[in-house]
Design a protein around this nucleic acid. Sequence first.
DNA 1: CGCGATTTGTGCACCTGTTCACAAGCGCCT
DNA 2: AGGCGCTTGTGAACAGGTGCACAAATCGCG
Lengths: 256, 256
Amino acid sequence: MSQHRHPGAPGRAGAVPALPDLPEATVARLPEYLRALHALADAGDETVSSEALANAAGVNSAKLRKDLSHLGSYGTRGVGYDVALLIDQIESVLGLTQCRSVALVGVGNLGHALAGYDGFASRGFRIAALFDADSSRIGEEINGLLVRHIDELPRVAADELISIGVIATPAPAAQSVADQLVAVGVTSILNFAPCVLSVPDGVDVRKVDLAIELQILSFHEHRKASLTALPATGGSALTALPGGLTATDTQEAIGT
Amino acid sequence: MSQHRHPGAPGRAGAVPALPDLPEATVARLPEYLRALHALADAGDETVSSEALANAAGVNSAKLRKDLSHLGSYGTRGVGYDVALLIDQIESVLGLTQCRSVALVGVGNLGHALAGYDGFASRGFRIAALFDADSSRIGEEINGLLVRHIDELPRVAADELISIGVIATPAPAAQSVADQLVAVGVTSILNFAPCVLSVPDGVDVRKVDLAIELQILSFHEHRKASLTALPATGGSALTALPGGLTATDTQEAIGT
DNA sequence: CGCGATTTGTGCACCTGTTCACAAGCGCCT
DNA sequence: AGGCGCTTGTGAACAGGTGCACAAATCGCG
């Protein structure tokens, strides 16, 4: 029940009519589909079924079809999806038809790696400038890019349009950096610092915390370990945890 | 997910040791609460209200209270939560009471940064070993750790228990590395390679793809750009406020 | 000792996202 | 041409998560 478009009337990419609302969960999966599609294209495939593509992207096929239907995608019933066409579609929706410039702030351990990460360039992102506050790092050249002082951000931003700012500084510096990025008009920030950023409305922040991912995995490890100990006879082998969470489960007690 | 117990026919349950099921969304937020709590503890605070803690963690206070109630936490009505106690509680649930050993495979650009990232050690994770397949990298020392050949993984794994494997290799090598990790008993994997891993049941995989994060931000940039170019719909946008506070907020946290 | 201020814990309604199941459409074969 | 098998697209049920609003509980104070 959304806008339907005539098949067989391929307009030109970039002339996207309107994308009013696209579920956030769908948006988060589109890049994964895109990666899988590129792999298929490299392998020479011209069409792909939802089942095969879903498999390559690690999702359910029904989910994939619904995702693609949301962006008014064109598959052919009985055949599948045209790989090249779908790539164009998704790239157009994601706004990847233009190369986007990224400003990276903080060239410490992680920032250094990000500056040299070729996965960005290969997917249409260009690191336009590197910044740091540590004067000992200014002037260093990483991957052909000069490290500038953060104070030069306004001048560089005026020079060329910056689509996205990446923060790879220590946590205490992150908020200040975010403020400076917002001040020069950046409205999308990828934050690697382990802290919460406060930004004005209209600015999008995504956070990636490597330690958090490990902690989530730790929980599942912990859970699995308890489960293996559980089914044994006389399961008292469970070691008493210092937190004392044993038997404190007051919720719902026991379903009667 | 899979386990469903029958209400009305337990009888035998008696003393249920731990709380096996905890909403996944809650688990994903606990580390964030933990970080905020540590910051509060460092600042000397002894108690904290749900409102304050939620603010520090960037979530809704009702959500935080519900999350904490899920793990049977004890706050004091009229007062708030005991910071130290809550830290113990969450760390216990996440299984962080023991120091977990991490094996990192792939010491390229990103792996190098991860090996030197101090955010791991500070949160209870110890990088136990570094591996790579590139013989030119074997023997290199990073942050006091020797880079070993991936073939030595079984021997090292036999030596000390590895809780989590981190894959920071190029995509083509990732599946093979995952297989080798699984073969030595690793049941939790953090994958930085841009590809889907297939692993047996019982093995948890979390994926972090830096380029995907940028592409999601790119979408929002694209959308914001189209919105400003298009006339407002429905005509309710009578005031052209520069802040653009009429935009429907879509800011959301991660959620895999 | 009771009262009010404060804050937690939670029932409930809402909303987003997922999954199932099937009709509709397409190509191919006879 | 017509039927048949295959695949998409989607309505509808389902599951899970979110946020409101309020009762219950606790502290401090007069």
